[in-house]
Amino acid sequence: MVQAKPRFSSFEEYLSYDDGTDKRYELLNGELIELPPESGENISILSFLHFQLVLLMGHRRVRWGLELEVRGEPKNRYPDLTVIREEHIQQLRPRNTIRLSMQPPLVVIEAVSPGLSNRERDYIDKRKQYQDRGIPEYWLIDPAQATVTVLELTDGIYRELGVFRGEDLIQSSVIQELNLTAQQLLQAGCA
Score class of each variant (00 low, 15 high):
residue 171 Q to E: 08
residue 89 I to A: 04
residue 8 F to S: 05
residue 123 Y to N: 05
residue 179 N to Q: 13
residue 124 I to R: 10
residue 184 Q to R: 03
residue 52 Q to I: 05
residue 54 V to C: 09
residue 42 N to F: 00
residue 175 I to R: 06
residue 168 D to K: 00
residue 120 E to M: 07
residue 99 R to K: 14
residue 153 L to Y: 04
residue 44 S to V: 02
residue 49 L to G: 09
residue 103 Q to K: 09
residue 43 I to M: 04
residue 59 H to S: 14
residue 55 L to P: 00
residue 140 L to I: 12
residue 58 G to H: 07
residue 28 L to H: 05
residue 55 L to A: 09
residue 134 G to S: 14
residue 78 Y to L: 03
residue 69 E to A: 10
residue 17 Y to A: 11
residue 2 V to R: 07
residue 67 E to Q: 11
residue 29 N to A: 12
residue 20 G to W: 14
residue 85 R to N: 06
residue 162 G to I: 01
residue 134 G to L: 05
residue 163 V to P: 02
residue 152 E to G: 06
residue 40 G to E: 08
residue 8 F to G: 07
residue 20 G to C: 12
residue 33 I to L: 04
residue 164 F to Q: 04
residue 26 E to P: 09
residue 95 R to Y: 11
residue 110 E to Q: 10
residue 140 L to E: 14
residue 76 N to M: 06
residue 14 Y to H: 08
residue 160 E to H: 11
residue 125 D to K: 06
residue 142 D to F: 02
residue 25 Y to G: 09
residue 36 P to G: 15
residue 180 L to S: 01
residue 131 Q to V: 01
residue 137 E to H: 14
residue 54 V to G: 02
residue 51 F to H: 15
residue 51 F to M: 12
residue 111 A to M: 09
residue 149 T to A: 08
residue 55 L to T: 06
residue 90 Q to E: 15
residue 101 S to I: 05
residue 127 R to A: 03
residue 120 E to F: 11
residue 119 R to M: 09
residue 106 L to N: 07
residue 134 G to Y: 15
residue 116 L to A: 13
residue 63 R to A: 06
residue 85 R to K: 08
residue 15 L to C: 15
residue 144 A to Q: 11
residue 141 I to K: 09
residue 134 G to I: 10
residue 71 R to S: 14
residue 17 Y to N: 05
residue 177 E to Y: 06
residue 41 E to D: 07
residue 176 Q to R: 12
residue 107 V to Q: 08
residue 99 R to G: 09
residue 93 R to H: 03
residue 77 R to C: 06
residue 36 P to E: 08
residue 126 K to E: 05
residue 155 D to N: 14
residue 134 G to N: 13
residue 21 T to S: 14
residue 87 E to R: 15
residue 96 N to C: 13
residue 125 D to W: 10
residue 8 F to K: 03
residue 56 L to Q: 03
residue 180 L to K: 09
residue 75 K to S: 11
residue 167 E to Q: 11
residue 135 I to Y: 05
residue 124 I to M: 02
residue 135 I to F: 08
residue 37 P to V: 13
residue 105 P to V: 06
residue 16 S to N: 10
residue 14 Y to P: 04
residue 34 E to R: 05
residue 169 L to G: 03
residue 155 D to P: 10
residue 56 L to N: 05
residue 117 S to T: 15
residue 93 R to A: 13
residue 147 T to D: 05
residue 43 I to E: 05
residue 152 E to L: 14
residue 23 K to E: 09
residue 135 I to R: 00
residue 135 I to K: 01
residue 48 F to L: 03
residue 66 L to I: 15
residue 9 S to L: 02
residue 86 E to N: 06
residue 58 G to F: 10
residue 87 E to W: 06
residue 174 V to P: 14
